[in-house]
Design a protein around this nucleic acid. Structure first.
Lengths: 343, 343
DNA sequence: CTGTTAGCGCCTTCAG
DNA sequence: CTGAAGGCGCTAACAG
């Protein structure tokens, strides 16, 4: 690779000093002679000069780059929210570096360190909750950071997330209204106290109670995705199996669908199914899937906006740290007992 | 944000010079006294020092970062291949910056420029074919770059892609073997001469010919995704509609499934369906979908490996520039006329 | 075995 | 209105 040309080359060609070129690059034309300006412009064009942002970053101590660390990129939620974040960042001339921690705290730690070493201006993370010490340090340093989807107690860090209890309540109520009575919920493991899972189960319990329905512990499955197939089998093997299932997220949904498919269980009729988190194929699935959708786009946008404001020191100190978003029920056929016809 | 500590602080604390610390950081312990070494180690721990990679990059003229530009992140192919690339990069201590050009040449150009300004060490791109001038310049500069999925003629740039004609041939043959005769193919627009689409259509034609079947132009739909719904409708409105469809990719698949669902067309029985590119829900779809899968993981791995070798100047000049991969047929029920039972 | 020195490419006072 | 000088944090000879 041939050596890149620098500001010095431009200066020489335009017969001005480096600093004048620098001023030009930074849009400070105020006191610049029009002829100087055009000479520089011409030189840049002819040499096809591209500023070196690494050098600029070193000097300015800001990189116009933020890091995004998601716990698990396999969730559609992650990719959707990332796209929304990128959108607003891009509009503001900010680049993003995306990292997938794979639900591994060690990996998360390494990513945080790497990103800090890269001098990112801020961080958005779906935290795995384990690296509290690091987060605390960042807070102490007043480093711009925003959490997404998951709460970490005791840390004054802005967090954008779903109103998960409401999501469950919507799901339960909808199922009851449609004649289902024995409602089960299936989520991934809660041993790490992951916010959405815990809250969705809590919301589920509360909703059952307020409908005067009993809470049946056998109907609650929260386990690692690799064992969930077995867990689902247990539910359906109960003396009195549920007549409806709430799927905690898109990954659990796949396991449920796999099971019902393999066992010829007819969704809607044999068992009602509603899933939290919209999925790409919900409309073309047979039957189409009723979902409780998160406003992922809005949430991503809000998260990015909060972070950018922090970076620019435009923080309103009045605000609370927790930003909850309301889910939306999208009714389709998987919660209709009488296989509704299309439209 | 408090000011970060630098190599100078460590040097002072450890009572050595900056260069000694630098040597330590770069693992050149060879001539270093063991006591010096431990003193430095201690200082780093105590100060919680993190090297500034921006400064290092400026000096070393290498950033240990590569850029990935995909034409359209909505394809599952993109995300899968990105994950494979990240995998091998991560193992080699290389970071990745992912950009989605959204099938927009202008956006692609800006991303290339931004990434170069960021001094990335190399580029992997799914090219939109329009910015040939930029690519040529990069080639002239001997800048490390690898293309993925799409060919750009006349440029000596390594390209990793599917053997698309074979993919179509496999699809056609499989359909014929299963008793289908009037085979249609549906892809996104080919006005830009996008390699996979063009090749898949060519392969389709050739396969029909070698099976002694006529090529029916009405059965070939290649149009923008936004109009594809209409195109599909046209196919099914023909006097003699096809009895099987080859879907060109995952996005076209969604359109097809939407149409068949809305029109109560039974897949397998009313119309056979096979899609090129594996999709997440192929197994749990009803009926499960027969696909022609790309070895995305391998392809991503190969792409990254080629690029890293280029970056490290370990290039074998003997190689050809085009690396073709064989697709795999995954037979499921969407190509079975007699609704096969599970298992 | 360790320190001195001289930049990497850019930005930013501060003189002129 | 423009230029000279210093330095961001780190690395890499080259002395010692």
């Amino acid at each position: 690779m041939t050596l890149r040309i620098t500001i010095a080359d431009v200066a020489k060609k335009a017969e001005v000093s480096k600093s004048t070129v620098s001023q030009f690059l930074n849009g400070r034309f105020e006191y610049m002679g029009i002829k100087t300006r055009t000479r520089i412009e011409k030189a840049i064009k002819e040499l096809d000069y591209q500023p070196n942002v690494v050098a600029r970053s070193l000097k300015k101590k800001t990189t116009s780059t933020i890091g995004i660390i998601v716990a698990n990129i396999l969730h559609e939620f992650s990719t959707q929210v990332i796209r929304a974040i990128e959108n607003v960042c891009h509009k503001n001339g900010i680049s993003t570096i995306i990292c997938n921690a794979d639900d591994n705290p060690e990996k998360e730690r390494i990513y945080i360190e790497t990103l800090l070493a890269k001098q990112v201006d801020g961080l958005i993370v779906v935290p795995i909750r384990r690296n509290s010490d690091i987060y605390e340090k960042l807070v102490d340093e007043n480093f711009p950071i925003v959490f997404l989807d998951r709460l970490v107690e005791g840390l004054p860090i802005d967090t954008v997330l779903l109103d998960n209890e409401t999501a469950s309540r919507i799901a339960v109520n909808h199922l009851i209204e449609n004649g289902y009575e024995r409602i089960s919920i299936v989520t991934t493991s809660i041993i790490e106290n992951i916010t959405p899972r815990v809250e969705r189960i809590n919301g589920y319990k509360k909703a059952l109670e307020s409908n005067g329905l009993p809470i049946h512990l056998d109907y609650i499955k929260a386990m690692d995705i690799t064992q969930l197939g077995e867990g689902i089998n247990e539910i359906f093997s109960l003396r009195e199996p549920p007549d409806a299932i709430i799927s905690g997220n898109d990954l659990t949904l796949m396991e449920i669908l796999k099971y019902t498919f393999e066992n010829n269980i007819e969704i809607g009729k044999d068992v009602g199914l509603i899933t939290i988190d919209e999925v790409s194929f919900s409309q073309i699935h047979n039957p189409p899937l009723t979902t409780v959708a998160q406003p992922t786009f809005q949430m991503g946008k809000e998260t990015a906006t909060i972070l950018l404001n922090k970076i620019n020191n435009k923080v309103d100190n009045q605000h609370s740290f927790i930003h909850r978003y309301k889910p939306t029920l999208i009714v389709r056929n998987s919660t209709q007992k009488e296989g509704v016809t299309n439209e």
